[in-house]
């Protein structure tokens, strides 16, 4: 068989996505049928099993962006830039979903959709910085310049996250009345709940790896088309 046979790689993808789908269905079954329903909050507490893993892979994604950016500025090789871009896109998606699921949980539990608690504020600023990061790539004059600018932004944004968090904690101590506080969110989790949460986090991490891999494959395909066009003289 020809090693460039597209059906071969297609099979690998089908296999991966089937395994992932099976794990995700198991995850849903665990969340809705195995994990006990919380006594006070009721069914809405189950948002936790999606919300927390989304937050986790959001931060993981931005850490990957940071690593990719540093390595790109150091090595100047395309794969690092592709990795940073792929992780940023998945990260923005997850952070958006994290903010939305958080609001869905907050309305019945805290009584408000939104509050300026340090975690929420930091997440929003984080989201805004990485949306800016993706826009910067789109508005750059050339792909290479876009990669360099985005790498700088990827580093600056990541370094800024703890400073934003610290400043909003200080700010919260100034405005105590504005905060409802996430205290009810933590506390001792039931062991079954913890197991489901960990399984869910693992599932979402696999999903993250899969999405980044697919996005990287897309970038590679794009590069190949560009090089073919260049070779054939089509612009």
């Amino acid at each position: 068989m020809d090693s460039n046979n597209p059906y071969k790689s297609f099979d690998v993808r089908v296999f991966l996505i089937s395994v992932l789908a099976a794990i995700m269905i198991t995850n849903l079954a665990l969340i809705f049928f195995w994990a006990p329903t919380e006594m006070v909050m009721g069914l809405v507490q189950k948002v936790l099993y999606v919300h927390v893993p989304l937050a986790w892979i959001g931060f993981l994604a931005f850490f990957v962006v940071f690593i990719g950016s540093v390595m790109y500025l150091w090595k100047k090789t395309q794969p690092w830039d592709g990795l940073a871009q792929a992780a940023a896109e998945v990260g923005v998606l997850c952070t958006t979903l994290m903010l939305v699921t958080g609001a869905i949980w907050a309305k019945p539990v805290w009584g408000v959709w939104w509050t300026w608690d340090p975690r929420l504020t930091t997440s929003t600023i984080l989201w805004l910085m990485y949306v800016g990061y993706l826009m910067l790539r789109g508005y750059a004059p050339s792909r290479e310049q876009g990669a360099r600018y985005a790498a700088v932004m990827g580093i600056v944004a990541f370094v800024n996250v703890p400073i934003v968090y610290y400043s909003t904690i200080l700010w919260r101590t100034v405005h105590p009345e504005m905060v409802i506080g996430p205290a009810s969110e933590t506390g001792n989790l039931d062991s079954q709940m913890r197991t489901v949460l960990l399984f869910s986090a693992l599932t979402f991490t696999l999903l993250f790896v899969y999405l980044v891999k697919e996005r990287l494959a897309l970038t590679c395909a794009y590069d190949r088309i560009l090089s073919i066009r260049h070779k054939e003289g089509i612009y």
Binding site: I125, L128, M129, V131, G132, M135, L136, Y139, A140, P141, Q145, Y149, V152, M153, V156, A157, N160, I163, V164, Y166, S167
Partner: peptide
């Protein structure tokens, strides 16, 4: 960074303001 991008008047505040929050 923004001086080289398209619509730089828009890009500068979008990048600068979130980073300047602290």
């Amino acid at each position: 960074i923004c001086v080289n991008t398209r619509s730089r008047e828009v890009m500068l505040p979008i990048l600068l303001l979130p980073v300047s929050v602290p």
